[in-house]
Write a protein that binds this DNA or RNA. Structure first.
Lengths: 156, 156
DNA sequence: TAGAGTTAGACAATGTTGTTGTCCATATAG
DNA sequence: CTATATGGACAACAACATTGTCTAACTCTA
């Protein structure tokens, strides 16, 4: 029988797993025509969704200020993933919507994540991977999209 | 029988798990006399270790510039977790060492992580938690301390 | 329908955290 | 002894987020 590892190993393993997946995602995205995308952008693009959002709305969804959200939209617009159109329902507001490049990148990301998951499934066995996902879901109830990672983590 | 979740769920679960643990750690640290510690600091304190390090050395361990490492040491010195003494073996160098408060905070963190792990162990069953740790270790070979999370993740 | 309060987004100022570059003192190799 | 590399301090700069302010537009209510 094996002994339990020290408690601090668990968070490190989780972070390492996240990081391995995301690094491999972005390596592949870069190889397939999306070299400018950064980890945050995936969260932002997901948060924009098919219907489009205003900057203030995006900020609320992501837990950052509307100014910060607006800068993300600016960047993604410059990179061609987002377009901003006047909101027909509110003259103050501009709707940020995904361009076809934006939806393409999301679809490609989904395919890549699917393949990465299937690699893990091969390495670990399908049942154990599913158990891992179920167990993590059990101990992280109601955790949503955490975009504020930079500020959350840092603090020199 | 259940169906597999989409691939993008896996990284989100891993990040959520990491975040839940670290948030609870720092909530408890704050309650027990360490309100100023941030998630990065745990990594820095671990990297300093019992023997002490120079700023340049710390930067290499953490994958950041020596200036950035020096600023972390400055902060931790101001908070009372680190002291800087001249290196007897090198007159250019200053050794950063943990103060007793620094080692105390590490020991407390270890105890808290131990308790958090045991909570997960109760919730999931000891075998499944151990399987989770082993499986993650299997798919994240050789991943060390990633301190560069802010810059890595961000990019407005 | 008029006025009060709220909300969107632009702009400016600021703070934090990281970077590179330069500098001097010290160490080390030839 | 000299040439080179390294440690740490200082300065300039860049990236990213924050708050505050301002104007325009929406919405609720009297």
């Amino acid at each position: 029988m094996s002994t339990d590892p020290p408690g601090f190993v668990l968070p490190l393993r989780l972070l390492a797993g996240f990081r391995v997946l995301v690094d491999r995602l972005h390596a592949e995205l870069a190889e397939h025509g999306h070299p400018g995308l950064r980890p945050v952008h995936g969260f932002v693009l997901q948060a924009i969704g098919p219907g489009g959002v205003s900057a203030a709305d995006l900020g609320r969804r992501l837990g950052v200020s509307k100014q910060a959200a607006g800068k993300h939209l600016e960047t993604l617009e410059r990179l061609g993933y987002v377009e901003r159109v006047p909101d027909p329902a509110d003259a103050r507001s501009k709707l940020a919507r995904l361009t076809s490049r934006g939806t393409d990148s999301l679809a490609l990301s989904a395919r890549i994540f699917e393949r990465l998951r299937s690699e893990w499934s091969t390495a670990l066995g399908p049942d154990r991977l599913r158990a891992l996902e179920e167990d993590l879901a059990k101990v992280t109830p109601g955790v949503l999209l955490p975009l504020d990672v930079p500020g959350w983590f840092g603090g020199a």
